[in-house]
Design a protein around this nucleic acid. Structure first.
Length: 797
RNA sequence: GGGCGAGUGGCGGAAUUGGUAUACGCGCAUGGUUUAGGACCAUGUUCCUUAAACGGAUUGAGGGUUCAAGUCCCUCCUCGCCCACCA
């Protein structure tokens, strides 16, 4: 089992140059045959350095792209850059660099690095979101959404990151902290641009059923959308004409309501203070100030239920007509439902806690058993509910809603998508304001609406675009005196919501993409990316696509067919890689020492790619893969001009089948295991038929593209190994016999070799020859024999 | 607190429909090779008993279904991820 060293640097450079010169990986978009396959990976942000996560993200799908091509598919495997974003701007502030230059320099570095990986991207379709040729269409698509009322401007309570000095979308806040920089977010009331993703909540949820995604990804999205069914119910307020509306998922517990609660932000509170209905104004205002000072996290983390009764006003129970108190309390969320709830302490945990602290009555309306403790949240038989008593709470629900004049309703946890950012390095929002302050979409002939360059970067919390004289002059020149530009830019997730459409026709100056190409190539066959995007990019892109579908711009309801979330590579110590822990793995070091092929194979071998696990980097792992490749290379010296051995041919065809299947499932680890086993079999003989060796090289080619290309040339083969056909996986039997396991009472007691298709009697006779079995059968025949041909014979005594 | 997923050697992991548990690799051990280190090669490596095993045990714990369970069902424990006062 000899190894033979090779000069990986030379081999890699030569192969990469050959592929580039031959345009080997360019997909023919207009190809009319039925073998197209769109393989998509999430395009990177040009941060400047390819880390191990990038290798994992790009080199693994590349293996699949290469397998598919050899299997005759017309594979579109494009790449681009999600090039707008904060780090470029931060570099500008910190180091006085031009964000554009910083970004473009980084892209150049990363293009070279991606090539060194041996990735078979089709660079002719490259998309860069910060280029005017691209963002003009981001702007155009936005204006279409605006025309159809899917984009709007509103004053709302929004999340503000004090460090990045910009607002954030709901999805970009985790536990009250900025998802990007980890700073605690603040609440601000600002006028901002939103997209009506909530209009699509139900379709985003329902259409998940049809998608062949893993259940955990679907579950995460549907939890994020958060559908609740229930009802709006109205409570008459003593001093007011308009009733207070509440949303509840348990209208069946209406008879258990002992008070109502409104969120401190609820408009009713201000109204009641202003019209003098409230007698304890001072106390109420103190509470309002106290909650306003709290951060979102403080409000939700501190489970202690605070609140203040509104003295002087009362509500009327819609069924019993009893007078009940009204509270303000910050456990009620202003932005969900109606911002007000009916409180049922006996059957809701939060109401129970609040009632306990404030000494409020608790009325049980669902019959409890001895095992039940309050609060009891399950459904059951109604009690204390007038004429509804005795009925099942689920069954009676609709009648109860009707009885109190309520209406059935559905609520979603999902909020509209806040897309404006008070930052410079982003796509300008294509809106101008007339002298009265009304927004107007910028007409198509003025697109792209270019990002100005005369900007003061000093972070002030105001949009940097507001410091541009050129932008203001441009606006007035085109639209007239007194007109003002919108100074916010888009959330970068807007840019990335449609980039995969642009790959299909990236140079088109007349349309965002080609409708013919979209019809042929959409939806994307398989999309690989990070699980962190499940409730961000993946949800945004689905919404955007559905909106475009409704406008007749795209031919499919869903953008992506299969979705695979990849895992994470941990440091050698099993912890997440971080500079402070000193466990960061730099792929360049390993590539330099062992070669790109060894790093690729190592990552493929580390664990299953079809599950988003986390895999620690083993410091000896790449070395062992290099050893494997050197054994492959050494085998070349054994190649002789002899006919193929039948046994070897059959073995290789089985390997081909295994590798195809595993690659299809993204289980590259077991595919490599099969290749290792095959290699050992090939190493067995004194010499090896050239054809057999070539077959093996073809199977290995997607995994180790450089070395296999080199050996292909050594053996004087035509063209590139990457454009030949995948070896046939004819199912030929390796031999004429099967190995069958013999069990007694389910315990393995030996094995026998039987001719294929042997019957039970033959199998039993043969099994009886095993000494242990013969001994066991001394006292009589087995009670039962279970014989699974080709696998097992189990004797039950 | 809720939802989802997962627990297999010292480690990463393997095991279509229930049908030889621990493939493949790392690490480790012994030997070889080498001036030495490293690299490389050979053999072994789930655990226990053992000179060796052809003996026994074993897929987080306990129970169940079955001729047969890592795989299916029930109870419990642990870990991970996501959501989290969403009425």
């Amino acid at each position: 089992m000899a190894t033979r060293s090779y000069d990986h640097k030379h081999i890699e450079a030569t192969a990469q140059e050959k592929w580039r010169a031959d345009n080997l990986y360019q997909a023919d978009i207009s190809d009319s045959s039925d073998v197209s396959y769109y393989l998509l990976v999430e395009f990177p942000y040009p941060s400047g350095d390819l880390h191990i996560g990038h290798w994992y993200a790009f080199a693994m799908p590349d293996i699949y792209a290469r397998v598919l091509r050899m299997q005759g598919k017309n594979v579109l495997f494009p790449i681009g850059f999600d090039a707008f974003g904060l780090p470029a701007e931060n570099a500008a502030i910190k180091r006085g660099l031009d964000p554009k230059k910083w970004t473009y320099d980084n892209m150049n570095v990363m293009r070279a690095q991606l090539r060194h990986m041996g990735a078979s991207f089709d660079w002719s379709k490259e998309v860069v979101t910060c280029e005017p040729e691209y963002y003009r269409w981001t702007q155009w698509l936005f204006t279409k959404l605006y025309e159809h009322d899917l984009a709007y401007r509103a004053n709302a309570s929004v999340k503000w990151c004090p460090k990045d000095k910009t607002v954030l979308a709901n999805e970009q806040v985790a536990n009250g902290f900025c998802e990007r920089c980890g700073t605690e977010v603040e609440e601000r009331h600002l006028t901002q641009w939103f997209l009506r993703i909530t209009n699509y909540a139900d379709r985003l949820l329902k259409d998940l059923d049809e998608l062949p995604w893993k259940e955990d990804i679907k579950d995460a999205q549907s939890a994020w959308i958060g559908k609740s069914t229930g009802a709006y119910l109205a409570f008459k307020i003593s001093s007011q004409e308009d009733p207070l509306r509440v949303f509840t998922t348990r209208p069946d517990t209406i008879y258990g309501v002992t008070y109502v609660v409104v969120a401190p932000e609820h408009p009713l509170v201000k109204k009641l203070i202003d019209d003098g209905s409230i007698s304890n104004v001072k106390e109420v205002q103190e509470y309002l100030e106290k909650t306003a000072r709290k951060t979102e996290r403080e409000r939700s983390e501190n489970k202690e239920k605070t609140g203040v009764v509104l003295e002087g006003v009362t509500a009327t129970h819609p069924a019993t007509k009893k007078i009940i108190p009204i509270y303000i309390a910050d456990y009620v969320i202003g932005s969900y439902g109606t911002g007000a709830v009916m409180a049922v302490p006996a059957h809701d945990e939060r109401d129970f806690d609040f009632a306990y602290v404030h000494g409020l009555p608790c009325v049980v309306v669902i019959k409890a058993t001895d095992n039940d403790t309050l609060p009891m949240t399950r459904a059951g038989k109604l009690v204390n509910s007038d004429s509804f008593s005795g009925r099942d709470s689920v069954e009676a629900q609709t009648d109860m809603i009707d009885a109190v004049g309520g209406e059935s309703a559905t609520q979603y946890r999902l909020r509209d998508w806040l897309i404006s950012r008070q930052r410079y390095w982003g796509c300008p929002i294509p809106i101008v304001y007339d002298p009265q302050g009304n927004p107007h979409a910028i007409p198509e002939e003025h697109l792209p609406w270019k990002l100005p360059t005369d900007i003061d970067f000093a972070p002030t919390g105001k949009s940097p675009l507001a410091t541009s004289v050129e932008l203001l002059e441009r606006t007035e020149r085109i639209f007239g005196k007194g007109w003002k530009p919108e100074c916010d830019t888009f959330d970068t997730f807007v840019d990335s919501s449609w980039y995969f459409l642009r790959y299909l026709d990236c140079k088109n100056a007349d349309a965002f993409s080609s409708s013919v190409a979209m019809k042929k190539w959409l939806p994307v066959d398989r999309y690989s990316g990070g699980s962190e995007h499940t409730t961000m990019h993946l949800l945004y892109a689905r919404f955007f696509h559905k909106a475009l579908y409704d406008l007749g711009f795209v031919p499919t309801k869903e953008p992506f067919n299969e979705r695979f979330n990849r895992g994470i590579i941990m440091g050698p110590d099993g912890h997440k890689m971080s500079k402070s822990k000193g466990n960061v793995i730099n792929p360049d070091d390993f590539v330099k020492k062992y070669g790109a092929d060894a790093v690729r194979i190592y990552l493929a071998f580390i664990g299953p790619y079809n599950e988003a696990g986390s895999y620690p980097w083993n410091l000896d792992g790449v070395k062992s893969m290099r050893r494997f490749l050197e054994r492959v290379y050494a085998l070349e010296e054994k190649v002789a001009d002899i006919p193929e051995q039948n046994e070897i041919t059959v073995m290789l065809s089985q390997t081909a089948e295994k590798v195809s299947e595993d690659a299809q499932r993204f289980k590259f680890n077991t595919a490599i295991s099969a290749l290792m086993i095959a290699l050992r079999a090939l190493e067995g003989g004194a010499s090896l038929a050239k054809e057999s060796y070539l077959t093996f090289l073809k199977l290995l080619a997607p995994f180790a593209p450089h070395l296999t290309e080199h050996v292909w040339e050594l053996l004087a083969q035509e063209g590139s190994i990457h454009s030949v056909s995948w070896p046939q996986s004819a199912v030929a039997k390796a031999s004429e016999s099967d190995t069958v396991v013999v069990q007694i009472n389910g315990k393995r007691r030996g094995e026998i070799t039987l001719p294929i298709g042997a019957d039970e009697n033959t199998a039993f006779a043969s099994a009886s020859n095993i000494p242990f079995v013969a001994e066991a059968l001394k006292n009589g025949k087995p009670k039962r024999i279970i014989y699974v041909p080709g696998r097992i014979i189990n004797l039950v005594l």
